[in-house]
Amino acid sequence: MASQGTKRSYEQMETDGERQNATEIRASVGKMIGGIGRFYIQMCTELKLSDYEGRLIQNSLTIERMVLSAFDERRNKYLEEHPSAGKDPKKTGGPIYRRVNGKWMRELILYDKEEIRRIWRQANNGDDATAGLTHMMIWHSNLNDATYQRTRALVRTGMDPRMCSLMQGSTLPRRSGAAGAAVKGVGTMVMELVRMIKRGINDRNFWRGENGRKTRIAYERMCNILKGKFQTAAQKAMMDQVRESRNPGNAEFEDLTFLARSALILRGSVAHKSCLPACVYGPAVASGYDFEREGYSLVGIDPFRLLQNSQVYSLIRPNENPAHKSQLVWMACHSAAFEDLRVLSFIKGTKVLPRGKLSTRGVQIASNENMETMESSTLELRSRYWAIRTRSGGNTNQQRASAGQISIQPTFSVQRNLPFDRTTIMAAFNGNTEGRTSDMRTEIIRMMESARPEDVSFQGRGVFELSDEKAASPIVPSFDMSNEGSYFFGDNAEEYDN
């Protein structure tokens, strides 16, 4: 783990906690998980779902989305002020799938948001429990990260689609708070800032007046979040320049895209947490497990152990491969979309394939898809080993990566060399080191050039047997250095459309 220093740990961010010791953190995270579980059980009762239907990941996603929508204050306010045809701002819903006479049927349900809020609060001892809501947002974000390569979004903001390893959390809503900021990748933060800068260039009043003052505060806050992700002084200094700019424009845009590229080699610290679907927490609570009393951590053995003992089902389209669908969801559960496939294969105990080789589309089923041909199958979400999630980018030494994705962002704290394609990355730096950030740029390029592919990161860190909950005997895996390590390699994943 990167030293926490003055930073709060993510469990504290996750639970809005002030400084807590490890036991208190485990208890408050457990409380959050228990609340999600209780809410899910109650919703299944309301909807009269069978046990099997309640364990269907598509039903879980609909129920999670309903509660997130019920608590989305800004959108609710907007919907009330701008009524649109056929949208009731006070209601929320989605597809629920039921097994009827041996076939899967889709039923569109509609609930009062007020009623959903009441059920959620009741499951969370009367609190709004925003930490639990954020947790579900991060699960949705991790699922998107594993399912889609955001080529269009990258290109629109002047970045290269091969930089997708920097895009963790790119679909997280803005209201996801400190826990959300911690899991956002460098590219995601750059993209958010670039969008602001572009608006400022096109709209003279963007930075002016009372609204402009708020915009400015948001801009500086985002700059500080991004600065905190960088691990070298030169990158941090460049972020200070971007933040202090009187009138952010093209120079800042250039600096930010430069920094994003540099992060492929001088990786930023991005938190990883295993956020599971509500249909995993519900049955665990129903079986009598007391998360608050037992304590829970999002970055240790607990999620692995929970998945070892969970039964989750998914709808499967006619030509999809259930094992591939399982891999997709497994990666999402562990926030591992940008991790090295060699490491993932070792931990999972079966070969993890790149996205383009998977015969599976996303987990969600569109409303126009034919239910007649839908089957369902068990998702295999178990693992051979477990490993500690990392909050750091690993040290800054790398190795060759593949054509589709030119770097990785480690999820697990496991000893290995970190793949990246130096030639491709360095070719993108057209040696432009003039301007006010020239000395920093020169320094950053120097550090990137001296990074050695064969150097090892996370020295001495290994994986653990599932029986080793105290992480007492690390097993340090050895990897084939020459092997392909990137998930979005030469990829044809669908595009994420909101």
Rank of each mutant, 00 (worst) to 15 (best):
K227R: 14
L110D: 08
S310A: 01
I388E: 03
F479L: 11
H324V: 04
L298V: 06
D128P: 09
L341N: 08
T147P: 03
I444C: 13
L133C: 01
N319D: 15
S438L: 01
Q168A: 14
R98T: 11
C279M: 15
R400N: 08
C164M: 06
N224C: 14
E320C: 06
R195L: 02
A129D: 06
M374D: 05
R389E: 02
F479H: 15
M189I: 14
Q409E: 11
Y78Q: 06
V285Y: 13
A218V: 12
F230C: 15
L358N: 03
I301S: 10
T147R: 02
A493R: 05
S377R: 09
H324Q: 11
T424Y: 01
F291H: 03
T411P: 07
E449G: 11
G177K: 05
E81V: 03
V414W: 04
M159D: 01
Q168T: 02
A27N: 05
E254F: 07
S402A: 07
R174F: 03
E11N: 05
P322W: 07
A131H: 08
S407A: 15
L276W: 01
R156G: 06
E375M: 14
R121Y: 02
K90E: 11
V463P: 00
N59Q: 03
Y78S: 05
D290M: 04
Q231G: 14
W104V: 02
Y10C: 13
S359L: 03
N125H: 01
Y10I: 11
N432I: 13
K214I: 08
N430G: 08
G393Y: 03
A286N: 12
A336D: 13
G288C: 04
A472E: 11
R98G: 07
S141Y: 09
V270R: 02
Y10H: 15
A182F: 14
E369L: 05
Y78H: 11
I197W: 05
E11C: 02
Q58L: 07
G102A: 14
A153V: 13
M13D: 03
T215I: 08
T92K: 02
S262W: 06
S345P: 00
N125M: 13
G169S: 14
S482P: 04
W120V: 04
F338M: 15
M239K: 11
H324A: 14
C164A: 09
S141P: 08
I119Y: 09
A427K: 05
A233L: 01
S402N: 10
P161W: 02
N205L: 03
S402G: 08
V29G: 06
F479N: 02
V329T: 15
M481W: 11
R221S: 15
F258T: 09
R305F: 09
T257P: 02
T411I: 13
H272L: 07
E210K: 11
G431T: 10
S335M: 03
L79G: 07
I138F: 12
D302P: 15
M440C: 06
D455C: 02
I265W: 03
K113T: 07
V363M: 07
K357F: 15
G295S: 08
A472Y: 13
R436W: 04
S392A: 13
S438C: 12
L344V: 10
L307A: 15
T23G: 07
D497A: 06
A428M: 15
C275K: 00
Q415P: 04
D491Q: 04
R156C: 11
A85K: 15
S478H: 07
I197H: 03
L379C: 04
E73N: 13
P283R: 04
F488K: 04
E244K: 12
T411Y: 05
R213M: 14
I36D: 04
S377F: 15
R342V: 00
N430P: 00
E244T: 08
M137F: 10
L193A: 06
W104S: 09
S287M: 14
P283A: 08
N368G: 01
R162I: 02
H140C: 00
A278V: 14
M1H: 13
A271N: 15
G102I: 12
A85W: 05
I116T: 08
S245D: 02
F429S: 09
L256S: 02
R19T: 01
R267E: 03
E210R: 02
A263H: 05
E210H: 06
E81K: 07
K470M: 13
T411C: 08
A336V: 13
F420L: 08
T151W: 04
Q12C: 04
I225V: 10
R199E: 04
A237Q: 09
R361H: 05
D468W: 05
L466P: 09
C164H: 04
A131M: 15
E454N: 14
P277D: 04
S413H: 02
I265H: 06
A332Y: 00
F489V: 05
S314E: 02
I475W: 13
D128N: 08
L47R: 02
R422D: 00
M136W: 06
F412A: 01
K229L: 10
P89N: 08
I119N: 11
